[in-house]
Design a protein around this nucleic acid. Structure first.
Lengths: 159, 159
DNA sequence: AATGAAAGTGATGGATA
DNA sequence: TATCCATCACTTTCATT
C-alpha cells in the first residue's frame, strides 16, 4: 500500500502534476528513461493510487464563477448522527470544492465557489436549512487568489 | 476574452475536469458530437484560457505528506511594500498549495501541506522570519479531508 | 462558421530479448 | 530495461451544411 517511489517515480510525478499532457517520450528524455519505461511507471502509479486522477483545471471566471469564499462551519458536537448527513450534503454539492474537518473553534472549513454573493448566500441558506446541526458559520470572501493548485511537494531528488 | 461557451463546451468541461484522459471519441459519443469536433473545441478552450491546465492529482499520503493545515495569516496593513515580497514568498513555496487574500480579521488564508507537525512548524518559522509584516498566524490542522478538488460547476444544461 | 469523414502523424502499450 | 511494432488517439485537410 505505501508504494515505494524511487527517484524516477518522483520526477515523473513532479512533471505530470504540472502538465499531464506531456508525452511519455518527452518525460523520458527529461529524466533519462525510455518512453515505455515512463509509461509502465505511470500505469503502476495509477494502479497503486499514487496518481488519483488526471483532470483539466478550468478558469472559474470563464464559467461565471467569480466568487471564492472560505466558510468556517461550527456544528453541534452533541449529535454525531447528523454529521454523516452533513458530510453527504457537502459531498453532493458541486459548489463546495474543498472541505476539511479541523481543530480549533470552528469545526469545518469549506472552500466554496459561486457566481456572486446572492448565489453564495442561497447556497448557505440551503446548507443551514438542510443541516440542523450547523450552529453558525463565518464567511470570508477571497478578494484575491494568490495560488490555486493541488500540487504536492514530491522531493524529486532524494537518491 | 469572456469566451462564449455553448452547451457542448460546457459538457466537455464537465467531463474533462473529472477525467482529462477520456478520449475525444468517447466524449463525442457522450455529448453527440464527432471526435474531431470535440478536439477542435478542446483546442480552442485551451487557447482561450478556459482550460488552464491538465494535471495529475497525487495522493499526498503516498509522497509522505500526511498533514494538511489551514493557516490564517494576519499582516501589518501599514507596510504595503512588504506585501509584494510576501506574495512572492508564498508563490515560491511548494508546500503552500493555495492562498487567498480575504476579508475579515486575518488577511490571508493558506492551505499548507507537510510531512508532520515538525515540518509544518519549520515552514511557518521560515515564513515569519522572511516576512517581517506577518504579525501572527493561526493554525488549524485538518483531521479529515472530506473533499479535495478544484472542479467548478459549469452548468452543463443552460440551452 | 462549424461539422463529419478520411488521411496522415504521432503517441501509446503490448511482446520480446 | 530498451527496442520493435501494432493499435489507438490526435491533428489536419477537405467537402458539406
Amino acid at each position: 500500500m505505501p508504494a515505494e517511489l524511487d527517484k524516477f517515480d518522483r520526477r515523473i510525478l513532479a512533471i505530470v502534476q504540472r502538465d499531464a499532457r506531456r508525452s511519455a517520450e518527452m518525460i523520458g528524455t527529461d529524466i533519462g528513461l525510455s518512453a515505455s519505461a515512463v509509461q509502465r511507471r505511470m500505469a503502476r502509479l495509477r494502479e497503486d493510487g499514487v496518481i488519483v486522477a488526471e483532470v483539466a483545471l478550468i478558469d472559474p471566471h470563464s464559467v461565471d464563477q467569480r466568487l471564492t469564499v472560505i466558510a468556517d462551519l461550527e456544528v453541534e458536537r452533541e449529535r454525531p448522527e447528523l454529521l454523516a448527513s452533513l458530510r453527504q450534503w457537502i459531498a453532493a454539492e458541486p459548489a463546495i470544492q474543498q472541505a476539511w474537518y479541523v481543530t480549533g473553534d470552528s469545526d469545518y472549513v469549506l472552500v466554496v465557489t459561486a457566481r456572486d454573493v446572492g448565489d453564495y448566500d442561497a447556497l448557505m441558506q440551503r446548507l443551514v436549512a438542510a443541516n440542523a446541526n450547523v450552529k453558525r458559520f463565518r464567511t470570508r470572501v477571497a478578494l484575491d487568489t494568490l495560488k490555486r493548485s493541488l500540487a504536492v511537494p514530491v522531493n524529486a531528488t532524494p537518491d
